[in-house]
Design a protein around this nucleic acid. Sequence first.
DNA 1: CAGAATCCCGTAGGATACTG
DNA 2: CAGTATCCTACGGGATTCTG
Lengths: 127, 127
Amino acid sequence: MTTSPNADNGALLSDVLARIGDKWSVIVICRLDGRPRRFNELRRLAEGITQRMLSATLRRLERDGLVRRTVYATVPPQVEYALTERGRSLHMILYQLVDWTDDHLSGIQASRAAYDAAHAAPPEPRE
Amino acid sequence: MTTSPNADNGALLSDVLARIGDKWSVIVICRLDGRPRRFNELRRLAEGITQRMLSATLRRLERDGLVRRTVYATVPPQVEYALTERGRSLHMILYQLVDWTDDHLSGIQASRAAYDAAHAAPPEPRE
DNA sequence: CAGAATCCCGTAGGATACTG
DNA sequence: CAGTATCCTACGGGATTCTG
């Protein structure tokens, strides 16, 4: 840890999470890994995303310097989106969360089921 | 990396981020580090949180097995919240994000300023 | 002390239609 | 192809009040 990490960084972290904690940012970042992608290509890769949200997500990521937008003045307009160095470094951190998720998702789902069973409408808790 | 991580885990990751990407979860998790805390104690530590959101956040975290709730049948009712093992393991991952944020926040803010300057209302882009 | 219930509002985000 | 513009709804989340 480069800093004394405990108390106050929670709020700082919230800034980042507020940024990437939305529905699509992380998915787009993951889909941008490896090579640049074009708009409609991304649209297909990020299944379920709408034009509107893809557009908005990319603009935010670009504003934060996580994604670079390159326009080629070709006959059918062509635009490429690619991760910047900063975006790639974030992507590597996110992999840790992917791993954590892989390791804990089933356990979480089990916890949820148990919690719901214990708390949901116990009709007559027959003694 | 324990898994081939690329494409499809984005959606999986989104599940986790949807869970902890809200306004308060991460802050509460960070404030729960070290030792258990009581409700109003947490309320003071997570500055700005309302009862309603603290309550809801804790319930969700408990449901996911990230936090354990312990009730002591004392005269004034006393309830303690503590990170579970799973919660602690997540907390450690989050520290990586804290570090990343520390390293990149100023750069991000600079990017935002540059982006805004470049895109905001160029009244007459005097040639 | 530790919360549940109620009310209310802003915004994320989906569907759809239009444009350079 | 690569978007922008509108419209609309669901839900996160704040303020306030009530309770075991």
